[in-house]
Design a protein around this nucleic acid. Structure first.
Lengths: 160, 160
DNA sequence: GGAAGATTGTTGTTGACGACAACAATTGAT
DNA sequence: ATCAATTGTTGTCGTCAACAACAATCTTCC
């Protein structure tokens, strides 16, 4: 029964192998990076869960969305716009093309590059993804509050 | 010179292999996850860059901070508190112990668990890390604005 | 017009990371 | 005393960012 346990803690209490809760974060509070990491983890997990039925992950959704909004875009342009490696986009497109959501059409003006388009199937699928993504977004609003979500979007608008 | 290029785009313009800028995001605007991902990427890169001289990454910093604030904590408790896998913490601690920042002391009350403590060297090192981390935090404030940073911290406080 | 340099898609490697499963040692519960 | 749970550890898998290299192609510049 815990005789003579540890000493003072800079922040609060401190105990050996306790329940795990009630542990001081000290300087970590006040670091945006830590909070953002935890939030990012939560938000991605919810997105994946909410769109599990259609088996679409956040990056795949973002790729299809950008292609849908800008048909004919090259891989380089998509990668640059979304901030993902063009090397990674190759595999992403391989997968999306296999599922007949996207097609790589050889560019008429540049034989190196591909013009990316959604297939007919891809377009109707994306419409469904969008509905599920909106549901996910409602989860976010429930979690942090409607106004807070909007404020967050505004604060981070410069990074999009 | 670009004869007969592509057609309309749901959002804005659209061009083949252009510069990459000026591409519509469509539904992606309004998705918190996307903005958060971009921001997280930026903030981690800046953290790593700012603390490159001492070769400390965000996770290592968070582990040392929590141990410093709660000496004697078990690995399980640290992992749970920071939301990292206990399997992953093993390697993190291996590295930090190798550099003589942290020590695993066998718990007197539970022979399965280790009581984690900062070494003397770890404590002075952490003080320096904290100064550099504060500098990083100033970069964040410069990037998104002092008030916005504080608002962000408040909005995401529930995730820490 | 042709050589030199840049760009595009592709393949591969590396390392950080989250998730999960298994295991031995130990503790707690019944 | 036995059975279930916990702790640290090892290992695997899949995702992801970051780089480097390469062939094909385009652009630039002479």
């Amino acid at each position: 029964m815990a005789i003579r346990r540890r000493a003072r803690a800079t922040n609060g209490r401190a105990s050996g192998g306790d329940t795990g809760d009630d542990v001081g974060l000290d300087a970590l509070v006040g670091h945006a990076g830590y909070a953002v990491r935890r939030f990012q983890l939560w938000i991605f997990q919810d997105f994946i869960k909410t769109l599990a039925a259609v088996d679409i992950r956040p990056t795949q959704y973002s790729v299809m969305t950008v292609i849908g909004a800008n048909p004919g875009l090259s891989q380089m342009a998509v990668a640059k716009r979304l901030g993902i490696e063009r090397a990674r986009l190759v595999h992403l497109l391989d997968s999306l093309e296999e599922r007949d959501f996207v097609s790589r059409i050889p560019s008429a003006t540049d034989r190196r590059s591909h013009a990316l388009h959604l297939t007919a199937r891809g377009r109707t699928a994306l419409a469904q993804f969008r509905r599920l993504a909106a549901e996910h977004e409602r989860h976010v609003a429930e979690k942090i509050g409607k106004e807070n979500r909007e404020q967050l979007l505004q604060i981070l608008a410069g990074f999009t």
